[in-house]
Design a protein around this nucleic acid. Sequence first.
DNA 1: ACAATTAAGTAAATCGATTAAGAAGCTACA
DNA 2: TGTAGCTTCTTAATCGATTTACTTAATTGT
Lengths: 343, 343
Amino acid sequence: MTKPKSWTLKSIAQELGVSNATVSNAFNRPDQLSKARREEILAACKKLGYFGPNKAAQSLRRGTFNIVALVLPDSVEYMISDPVASSFMRGVSAVLEKNGINLLLFSGNSDNLNSVVDFVDGFICYGRPRNKQLVEQLKQVAKHVVTVDFNIGRDASVNVNNQQASFDIAKHALHKNDDRVAILGLRLLDNDVLCRVYEHHEFEAGQSIAHQRLRGYHQAISDAGITLGDDRTWNIPESSERFASIAAKEALNSTPRPNVLLCMSDLIALAAMREALKMGLSVPEDVRIVGFDGIDEGQRFVPKLTTVHQNSEEKGRIAATLFLSKEQQTAEIDYQLQLGQSS
Amino acid sequence: MTKPKSWTLKSIAQELGVSNATVSNAFNRPDQLSKARREEILAACKKLGYFGPNKAAQSLRRGTFNIVALVLPDSVEYMISDPVASSFMRGVSAVLEKNGINLLLFSGNSDNLNSVVDFVDGFICYGRPRNKQLVEQLKQVAKHVVTVDFNIGRDASVNVNNQQASFDIAKHALHKNDDRVAILGLRLLDNDVLCRVYEHHEFEAGQSIAHQRLRGYHQAISDAGITLGDDRTWNIPESSERFASIAAKEALNSTPRPNVLLCMSDLIALAAMREALKMGLSVPEDVRIVGFDGIDEGQRFVPKLTTVHQNSEEKGRIAATLFLSKEQQTAEIDYQLQLGQSS
DNA sequence: ACAATTAAGTAAATCGATTAAGAAGCTACA
DNA sequence: TGTAGCTTCTTAATCGATTTACTTAATTGT
């Protein structure tokens, strides 16, 4: 027998004594051949072990892939353990899976969209990718792009009003005009450094999430009649326990000792709470701490964390749905203050 | 001008007045043409905005894709928020990213590998996929397959000795021969039901992780001279707070009230601890609780969780490395007992 | 100066499919 | 009977590349 182990459209057509096109049509366009013929062919294919047209070839020809790339702000490795990001991914994958579309994870550290652009139907980009070259490429790429939590003027985007939300939560945390505020910021700076920031003019105009949130804080602070010292802001390069603890400890030991800590993520806020408790401070009596995100662990912590809850999963669902609809539009999604005992 | 907006190898070759092959060689086989010619061509391409050969076409021709599918045991949506699974993914993606290989997430619920098999270089399969058809397909697929935490006799696999580990942790938890033991099992049954299991003969021979662990528990229990009642085992269909709490509550209210809870995951153990504390029981005085996995939250909990720590990230790295090496081999990886105050 | 070797580049087959255009056979209707 | 209209199926071009085998031209050795 000269049966090849792995069939192709061509070889199977030959075997069955029909043309290429007929087999293809049997799989893709039932109206192009008689019902009898079609069933005969499909049955024969099944029997011989040909499971349908090769998807890679199909995709090359058709130009569609059934794959969407999820571009993460940072390395996949790092992002996958971030509760907020993974919640977002959950929403995205739920919608895609339901539509039979596969998800390709793409690192925001890569310097070239090129390695995947020819394989995907488009991009869902969650937060501004760390590598700026990627941003430029995303602006120009000839496929559908949905951005989330940032904007590059592409097809569609999903956003939360970070400034307003930060304003709200800060306003809630601030009681009197002699409150001593410190800010534990997440990725305020481009580089990876953990540091105390003294002055940085980009903050006033920056479009990153961190800058938006910072403006919300600043507005609430000044509304409360407080003057924020120029040494009251820390930059934490990634939302990890380790970095957050160091920054929190430093902030809590700084003079004047802050009695309000505005944290740009729940992970940071939780680390700060642990440090505060370890130092014998009580929360919220000695120091009020608020977070951002609304992760589960914050709600289980004692005292329960006061934070801004944004439904990241919903955000993911919306982003994916928007992607699938191929519509051009901008969605703004809701957030809620989640009041705990930490402030 | 008749410049097409998006170049192809062919059109760019025409534009430059050279052959197809020469342009291809300029990108892929520098030794096949003069240095001068090559640089001239590459420069021209850059200038015209041709970023290199289309990857999809390249892949079709070459049969390699630079994509590996990570087959998860359950839906992507669900798996991405599981701390152990995401830790594993972290390890995998770290290695793949370093090697310029992209990661495609594939749901263990899908009933057809077909939708991706033609797009990937192979599969890393983390745990037995929920859908059994997938398992059959994985056995037969003509691409490289590495399985983790289960075995189908394919190219390579990575395993932990679950039975031994469970034996060890159970032995540690059991003190006297009048200990009253209950088991909170994870996915002991195929179906999605939360229930108390009375008898199930498959347990004795099953190869799933849950069955391996169960055998370890049983062995330690009988070694300790304890007879396990046939109504002391619960099946929890997924490692979630909700299900775990219900099962834990039921177990703790059952007669005789257990003073040892063997939990097949940390998430379950943590939920059980919360329920126990809520009921006014003290841990470990009234009830000793042990988990499995070694997630971060367990180490932060008060009392600190006693558990089996397996380095999932390392497991991921090993799986990915094994995949890349294309070797045929089986790796067994280590585990450690992590002793806390919960037992 | 002539054959042998090497270098540089090209033509054409191929990867595995889709699909527009057309051929062959059949029915129907005047 | 001739032609119009359907069905059903096939031929051949195409998607965007890679690669083997071949042609030419230049270099080398003697």
